[in-house]
Design a protein around this nucleic acid. Structure first.
Length: 892
RNA sequence: AGGCACGUAGCUCAGGGGGAGAGCGCUACCUUGACGCGGUAGAAGUCGGCGGUUCGAAACCGCCCGUGCCUACCA
């Protein structure tokens, strides 16, 4: 490899894997528990082992990597803790499906064998997502990688479970829960997704006992009538007041059930009489408890009707619905069927319709835990960014309900509870007990259920650091510095980590929570496999390069707004990578003979270009640093993008070319080379957190000190380096060049044609400056001869433009279009008049003069004066052209 | 039903009480010794609508329309 010569275009493929391996080999990602540096830590939101990288992961991990690389370069002792999640239901489903392809049923295999198969599966495929994270450039400390089912993390789970149980914050009880008949497990209320669907509202007549009359109830789920144990009406409802205490005969089953009064009933809905099915409806369950109603389960774990359903026994719940309706219709007791839109709950894993079912489950009593977690955010011990999410957090935490943590699956942390076969005692213990703590019998049976995956995820910030052991890692890195995550798991995960962290560590799990957006498709829709609108990040990385992809994500990551990813933007940033590459290629080619600078250089002795770029770079450092510290990734990305492309490349490199190519001033050339390398080096450092690969590749080829840009110092803003004079002077130079280029463009003068330009500056200091910087102007505006004239020497036949203090004249050659110049000037004059009008309107308003701040008034006045001058000069020029003759005549 | 965002150039999006911005796209010209994944110039927007606050609103407030999301739940 020739260290100095770069290929013409940047090729990410030749670069990315090489540097990632380099960083890994050198151990640059590793955290150090004995470091004296200030710690800065992040725990990764652990992706599911079944997963592969999607856009959400890509965004989430790119942002974390930007932060951790930034902090690492700033000199913090950084830890980015990686790992994966065992994802109980999802993983079990995946492995079950695979087994069924082999014709194996998990029940036939047995629990132990099945779990073995899951571990095998994990060994084989579980590493996919970590490989992809590495491709993304994630600088995690992989030597510490954890998995929620690891021995250590499992110990943490048991410890937490036992303690919460002993403190009566975990209990087992018979409650109504959300049941997925396909996954055959209970779900927490967060794992149910509600979707509006069109259904039917059936009006059913229940005959009153002893008489011809009946009561009408309405339901969307007629099959549940088999489990009805009451009809409820509102106590103040005149229509039904007299019926309270009477009984109805439940059709089909001919069971007698009471009419009860409960304020829950909405008199305006349907008939105002509510059928009560305590075993299959959340609200009915509450009513059932309050009134001591019988609870009859008519639907089983598979979604089939139980023995209690009488003639419908064994039937699927939806088949049963049809049959019940048919039977009511036949009896003439189906009074009415309305179309009805309502929300139906679905399993978040398999989309099966949820069946609320009475079931014996384990719960966490969340209220006491939530209070402390709410307080932590109120106190500002944890800050949620952007703050709008704090409201959502409080809202949910204040209305939190007990958390159903038991799952009837096999893959997961088995609940550390045992039952005595003899006396039915429940024993909760860290280790497997040998005998019953009450009766001493040795026949014990472990609880079959496992814990909700989120239970172990809730411990992630401290379990990964070694808890319950008192480790150095915990001392150094807990609380973590920031958690970066999407709002979709704010409740699932963030809130629960807060509760557990505060409870078991006595301190919040993270100082900041940065909530980023969701990545959507170009039409703003969620990306999903079923919609077929997913963009695969791995393919994007291969096509455009990882750096371009990462930069796109950062540039899109404005707070509080979702990201609609567009490939055009990614392509744009691939061009940016190429731009950097070529700027570096140029720089390297001119640095070959750089003699090095051994002495201090006085800033004030430098050329304008050098002073200007140093000042602008310093400012860019300030902007990017501030942006990253406040998680304004898009603003940071924009600042460095603008600096590199539009200041460093467009202006600085062009300005210094004559010096670099010329041989007449070796001293000036050496100084310029020095500034060039310093600024390029600095810009690469600032860019590194966003684009780690290309910056490392280039930096390693530049003259440098240190082993890698990855561990180099992030540039620091220095207020003393601000060079106001250079900025002002450069502004004059730039505006003059723009003015000349504008005429060239508008007048259709060929870009390569060298022009004769006259400048008129009435103020001597402006003229002196222009004179001083004439090489910049002649070079960048491609000028043949540049002369300075006085107002008496204005040429008649010249294209002209007016800047603030400078008038530009370009003599018109025979082949130039007079008419074009006239139109151009007229357009300018019109613009000026429009602005004058606005300024006049303001200045003639007394209230503006008296109430607006003086500086604003002054500004408008100054603007008006400038506009007037401009107007006069433009009109003058226009007049001169018109004097020459017919603008559309022969000259045109 | 309640809540929260968002509506700015053809597209994707920044910005945010006193001069409407970027990227892509578009038009014209250009093999200028880093880059055509480039350069230079240009066209393009009643900043969703209507009111209000203010000397001044695209920005702040209210209402409306549109879009998206979240939460809750209606048997």
């Amino acid at each position: 490899m020739d260290a100095k010569i770069l290929s013409k275009a940047y090729d990410p493929r030749a670069v990315e894997d090489k540097w990632y391996a380099f960083w890994m080999e050198r151990g640059y990602f590793k955290a150090d528990t004995h470091s004296t540096k200030i710690p800065y830590s992040i725990v990764i939101p652990p992706p599911n082992i079944t997963g592969s990288l999607h856009m959400g992961h890509a965004l989430n991990n790119t942002l974390q990597d930007i932060v951790i690389r930034f902090k690492r370069m700033q000199g913090f002792n950084t830890l980015w803790m990686p790992g994966t999640d065992h994802a109980g239901i999802a993983t079990q489903n995946v492995v079950e499906k695979k087994l069924s392809e082999e014709g194996i049923d998990r029940h036939g295999l047995g629990r132990e064998k099945f779990i073995e198969r899951v571990w095998q599966w994990k060994e084989q495929y579980g590493g996919v997502i970590t490989k992809q994270l590495k491709k993304l450039g994630a600088s995690c400390d992989w030597s510490r990688e954890r998995f929620t089912m690891d021995e250590g993390l499992s110990e943490a789970v048991r410890e937490v479970f036992v303690r919460l149980y002993q403190e009566d914050l975990i209990y087992k009880g018979n409650y109504i829960i959300n049941w997925c008949p396909r996954c055959r497990t209970a779900l927490s209320e967060l794992e149910v997704e509600y979707e509006e669907e069109s259904g039917k509202l059936y009006h059913l007549a229940y005959p009153l006992k002893g008489g011809e009359r009946s009561v009408t109830v309405v339901t969307t789920r007629p099959e549940t009538m088999l489990g009805d144990t009451a009809v409820a009406v509102h106590p103040q409802d005149d229509r039904y007041h007299k019926l309270i205490g009477e009984r109805v005969i439940l059709p089909v089953l001919h069971r007698e059930i009471p009419i009860i009064a409960d304020e829950y009933v909405d008199t305006d809905f349907g008939s105002g009489a509510l059928k009560v099915t305590p075993a299959h409806d959340v609200n009915d369950f509450e009513i059932g408890l309050a009134h001591g109603l019988e609870m009859v389960k008519v639907i089983d774990e598979d979604g089939k009707m139980t023995r209690e359903a009488g003639p419908y026994r064994g039937m699927d719940r939806f088949e049963c619905r049809k049959r019940v309706i048919g039977d009511f219709e036949r009896d003439g007791t189906l009074l009415k069927v309305d179309s009805y839109r309502h929300n139906v709950g679905h399993c978040y894993r398999c989309k099966t319709i949820i069946e609320p079912t009475l079931s014996k489950q384990w719960f966490v009593r969340t209220k006491p835990l939530a209070e402390a977690a709410i307080q932590a955010v109120k106190d500002g011990r944890t800050k949620i960014v952007p703050p709008v999410w704090e409201k959502t957090y409080f809202e949910w935490m204040n209305n939190i309900r007990d958390w159903c943590i038991s799952r009837q699956i096999w893959w997961g942390h088995r609940i550390p509870a045992w039952y005595c076969e003899e006396c039915d005692e429940t024993i909760v213990s860290r280790e497997e007990p040998h005998s019953c703590t009450r009766c001493g019998k040795r026949e014990l049976r472990q609880e079959a259920d496992v814990l909700d995956t989120w239970f172990s995820s809730a411990l992630w910030p401290f379990s990964t650091l070694g808890w319950p052991e008192e480790t150095e890692e915990l001392k150094v890195f807990y609380p973590t510095s920031v958690l970066v995550t999407g709002f979709d798991i704010l409740f699932f995960w963030v809130a629960r980590m807060m509760m557990m962290g505060v409870r078991f560590m006595g301190n919040v799990p993270f100082r900041d929570v940065y909530i980023h957006a969701l990545v959507r498709d170009i039409q703003g829709r969620k990306m999903s496999k079923s919609r077929g609108n997913v963009i695969d990040p791995v393919m994007v990385m291969e096509e455009y390069g990882t750096d371009a992809f990462r930069f796109t994500l950062a540039a899109f990551a404005a707070q509080g707004r979702d990201i609609c990813l567009s490939e055009e933007r990614i392509e744009g940033y691939r061009h940016f990578a190429n731009k950097i590459w070529n700027a570096s290629r140029f720089s390297l080619s001119t640095l070959a003979d750089f003699p090095g600078i051994t002495h201090e250089i006085d800033l004030h002795e430098m050329s304008l270009a050098n002073r200007w770029i140093l000042s602008r770079f310093n400012e860019t450092v300030r902007e990017v640093t501030a942006a990253l510290e406040e998680y304004r990734f898009n603003e940071g990305a924009q600042a460095i993008y603008h600096f590199i492309w539009h200041e460093f490349c467009d202006w600085f490199l062009e300005l210094i070319k004559p010096v670099l190519y010329g041989k007449d001033d070796p001293q000036e050339r050496a100084v310029t080379q020095y500034v060039l390398i310093r600024v390029l080096d600095g810009a690469l450092r600032v860019l590194h957190p966003f684009m780690p690969f290309i910056t490392e590749e280039i930096w390693q080829r530049l003259p440098h000190e240190g082993k890698a840009i990855m561990i180099a110092d992030f540039p620091q803003y220095n207020a003393g380096l601000k060079d106001e004079e250079a900025l002002v002077d450069m502004d004059l130079v730039m505006r003059t060049i723009w003015g000349i280029r504008n005429i060239r463009g508008e007048m259709d003068i060929a870009p390569h044609k060298r022009l004769d330009v006259s400048l008129l500056a009435e103020r001597a200091e402006v003229r002196d400056r222009l004179e001083q910087y004439r090489t910049y102007i002649t070079h960048l505006a491609r000028i043949n001869s540049l002369s300075f004239i006085t107002s008496g020497e204005k040429p008649r036949d010249a294209a002209t433009t007016v800047l603030g203090d400078v008038e530009i004249f370009i003599p018109m050659a025979k082949d130039m279009h007079l008419g074009g110049e006239v139109r151009r000037l007229e357009k300018e004059v019109q613009k000026v008049h429009k602005e004058l009008e606005i300024a006049d309107r303001k200045l003639s308003n007394d209230e503006f003069i008296s109430k607006a701040p003086a500086e604003i008034v002054e500004k408008v006045k100054a603007k008006k004066d400038a506009l007037l001058i401009r107007d006069r000069k433009l009109t003058e020029s226009l007049g001169k052209i018109l004097e020459i003759g017919d603008p559309d005549g022969p000259g045109a």
